[in-house]
């Protein structure tokens, strides 16, 4: 386990320099005017950054209001009976609800849970597995679709949240089995 982790750590350090080396180097071999092409591509970076702004503003504003108002606490309270049915400790419910909404928010909830119940407790184990296995779906929808100006998201959020729910519930089951 330790050596696998070391190998993966090294891989993630080497990955980016290696990709840059191979891609730019291959461009050189193929006689691509690398500097000119790089700049040509890079100039789009600004446009994309600016294009995302309205989408991100709308999304982060709604999420911040939802958190600050205590609406999340109300939702947690309402969903408690459901968590009991699927064997989820009700303490980790705020984590499950926060995870798709906010990355920094879920770091906060996870840290809080581990401080209160212990890092290596079942609750600590479940909350960090939840964090490690799912993404901030709302943020990804805003940024990815925003970058190409997509306002009609169709069934993207439904499918994204289904995936999140599956990940979160699986996290509970696996941790209960292993703990």
């Amino acid at each position: 386990m330790e050596s696998i982790k070391l190998a993966i750590d090294w891989l993630s350090i080497i990955a980016i320099p290696l990709i840059i080396f191979v891609f730019i180097g291959y461009g050189g071999i193929k006689k691509v005017k690398v500097y000119e092409k790089f700049v040509e591509g890079a100039k789009e970076g600004f446009n994309i950054g600016v294009k995302i702004i309205p989408f991100l503003v709308a999304m982060l504003m709604a999420i911040a209001m939802f958190r600050a108002s205590g609406a999340l606490d109300v939702l947690t309270y309402l969903l408690k009976p459901v968590t009991n049915l699927i064997g989820m400790p009700s303490e980790v419910l705020p984590m499950a609800l926060m995870r798709p909404l906010s990355g920094s928010g879920s770091v906060g909830v996870m840290t809080d849970l581990m401080n209160t119940y212990g890092v290596d407790s079942l609750i600590g184990f479940i909350s960090s597995t939840m964090f490690g296995s799912t993404e901030t779906t709302f943020y990804v929808v805003a940024v990815y679709f925003g970058s190409v100006g997509i306002r009609k998201t169709r069934y993207a959020l439904t499918a994204g949240l289904m995936a999140d729910a599956a990940g979160l519930i699986t996290a509970v089951f696996i941790c209960r089995m292993l703990f």
């Binding site: 990709i19 840059i20 191979v22 891609f23 730019i24 291959y26 461009g27 071999i29 193929k30 691509v32 690398v34 092409k37 790089f38 700049v39 040509e40 591509g41 890079a42 100039k43 789009e44 970076g45 600004f46 994309i48 950054g49 600016v50 995302i52 702004i53 991100l56 503003v57 999304m59 982060l60 504003m61 940024v143």
Partner: peptide, 28 residues
């Protein structure tokens, strides 16, 4: 914060879009 995140993305966006452009031209 939303504006800061979007602006902060510009640098890495430019880097990777530049590299991808070179890779695309080369056929990578």
């Amino acid at each position: 914060r939303a504006v800061k995140i979007a602006i902060g993305l510009i640098g890495v966006m430019a880097l990777w879009l530049g590299i991808m452009k070179v890779a695309e031209e080369a056929g990578m």
